[in-house]
Amino acid sequence: MQRTFHEFYGYRVACTAPAEAQPVVQRLFGAQPIVDPHLPWPGTDTVHLSFEVTGDSHAPVPPPYFPPHWEKLDEIVLDTGSSTAVVCLADRAVRVQLARSDLDNPIVWGRWLVEKAFLVLTLRSDRHYGLHAGALSLNSRAALVTADSGVGKSTFTAWGLFQGATLIGEDAMMRHIDDPEGRFWGYPRCSYLDPALVKSRPELTDAVSAMVPAREKCRLEWPPSFESRLLTAVRPQALLVLTRAHQEIRSVGIDAVIELCRSDFTAGKLDADARDRAEDDLRTRLGSMDLLEFGLAPDLDTNYTRLAATLRA
């Protein structure tokens, strides 16, 4: 068994895995582990992630987005029928039993198990919360990007990366309330994109991707050529709410943004004090941002030009 340290959504991760699971660890975290186990920031939580490889050969099936009663249980089991992850809240531990047949299946160990496990840890914590959002940085300024499902948030953030922006995340951004820098943390190593978009980009010819069952998206692992423009944390200066209802850029009030995001930052929090703490922190963060409703044009290059102009303002 090999033990290495990594960062995932702003958590310090102490990862233990056998040799045959090391390729999975590298694909999840990147080739270079954290040398200093005290990173990524003083006071951050350490999550103990362990992998065990089993001989189970059942075909994996899409699990529910969240398992039943996940917001009440002390241990949450994520089960794909072939592999499982047990999230133990008290121990800050994620124990993955990965079927040997799933070792090369990033939908199982990525989307359904590890990514979901860290989302569960965040949403169940009274010192953390998440937003259904991505983030881009351009011109030394960064924006959170949120939208209803299907509007085009993933395409918008990916196109920004294609055009030279830095990608911080594309679907979930996590906030550690005790982080003194006021940052939001993402997982930019992969994106969930329309396969047609992936096929249209020559720089993605050799990129590793896998279709998500029952979804019209694939999980794309960004190739090494994008490595220098993948960043895991940012302190945003703006929040963009993407819409197709119009093609204008309009100011949005902070109360409207809070209501838009309420189901995100309160998810998993049954305690009223925890919900209030998350809302207070988000209000503080939003108070220093430009809050904009960003109407999407049909042309992706036009949207990027308008994004660049917005972040220069």
Rank of each mutant, 00 (worst) to 15 (best):
A267L: 15
A272F: 14
L282F: 15
S263E: 14
G295D: 04
F265W: 09
D280T: 14
K269H: 02
E293G: 05
K269V: 10
L292V: 15
C261S: 13
P298H: 02
E293Y: 13
A278F: 13
L286S: 02
A274E: 03
E293I: 10
K269N: 04
R277P: 02
F265D: 05
G295R: 01
L260Q: 10
G295H: 07
G295W: 04
L282S: 00
D264K: 01
R277A: 13
M289Q: 08
A272V: 14
D290W: 12
R283S: 07
D264I: 09
S288T: 15
C261G: 02
C261M: 15
L291M: 08
F294Q: 02
A278V: 08
D290A: 14
L296E: 06
T266Y: 05
G295S: 03
M289D: 10
G268L: 06
G295K: 01
S288W: 06
M289P: 02
A272I: 15
A274S: 10
M289F: 09
T284I: 06
L286R: 00
R283T: 06
A272C: 07
A297Y: 14
D276Q: 12
D299K: 00
A297D: 12
L296D: 06
D273F: 14
L296T: 05
E293C: 09
T284A: 11
L260W: 15
L296F: 13
R285S: 15
S263I: 15
L270I: 09
T266V: 12
L292N: 00
R285A: 15
F294A: 01
E293L: 07
P298V: 08
A278K: 00
F265H: 06
E279K: 01
R262C: 10
L292K: 04
L260E: 12
D281K: 00
D280W: 08
D290L: 14
L270Q: 12
G295F: 11
E279L: 03
L291F: 03
C261T: 11
E293M: 08
D276F: 13
L292Y: 04
D299R: 00
L291W: 03
D290P: 00
D271Y: 07
T284Q: 13
G268T: 00
A267Y: 09
L286H: 04
D280K: 11
L282G: 03
A274Y: 08
F265K: 02
L286K: 00
L286M: 04
G268K: 00
S288N: 02
D271N: 08
L270C: 11
K269R: 03
G295E: 06
L270V: 06
G268Q: 02
L291N: 03
R283K: 10
A274Q: 01
E279W: 05
D264A: 10
L260D: 14
R277V: 07
G287Y: 06
L270R: 11
F265P: 04
R283N: 05
C261R: 09
A267Q: 12
C261Y: 11
A267R: 08
P298E: 06
D280P: 00
D301T: 11
D281P: 04
A272Q: 10
D276A: 13
R262N: 11
